[in-house]
Each structure stands twice: as structure tokens, then as C-alpha cells.
């Protein structure tokens, strides 16, 4: 096996398999971020993100 074929095979492998860990991790991270920025009712989070919640039309108050 030569250097070039190995590199090509690696690239192909990277682009054809779903990374379940990556997909689930990214979505979970996003949900945590959205919870604190858009939904958490504690005054600390609500007040900090107040204008953003209104601008981005999250249900607020």
C-alpha cells in the first residue's frame, strides 16, 4: 500500500460515516445553551438574556 492510497481511503472514510457521537454531542450542547439563553426562568438567566429573548422571539414573561 502506498502513501497516496492510504490518504485517499482515510478521506473517503471521513466523509461517508455518520459520527453519532458528534451529532448527539453537538445537539446536546446546543440544547443546554438554548435552555439557559432562551428558556431558564431564574432571574439571573432571564434578565441577562431578556432583550435577546424578545428580539429572537422566544416565549418570554
Amino acid at each position: 500500500m502506498t502513501t497516496t492510497t492510504l490518504a485517499r481511503e482515510n478521506t473517503r472514510e471521513n466523509t461517508t460515516s455518520v459520527s453519532l457521537f458528534g451529532v448527539a454531542g453537538a445537539i446536546l450542547t446546543a440544547l443546554v445553551l438554548l435552555y439557559f439563553s432562551g428558556f431558564a426562568e431564574a432571574a439571573k438567566y432571564h434578565d441577562s438574556a431578556h432583550d435577546t429573548r424578545h428580539t429572537l422571539a422566544f416565549p418570554c414573561h
Binding site: 458528534g22 453537538a26 445537539i27 439563553s37
Partner: peptide, 21 residues
């Protein structure tokens, strides 16, 4: 408020990126 904008859009970016992957 502006920091919260980045938090929200990074979150949407992560979801979009995950689905596009």
C-alpha cells in the same frame, strides 16, 4: 444581551452543523 445572541446562534449553528453532517 449581545453575549446571549452569540450563545443562541452558536447553539443553532451546532444543530445545523450536526444535521448537515
Amino acid at each position: 444581551a449581545f453575549a446571549a445572541d452569540f450563545v443562541v446562534y452558536v447553539a443553532w449553528g451546532l444543530i445545523l452543523s450536526a444535521l448537515i453532517s
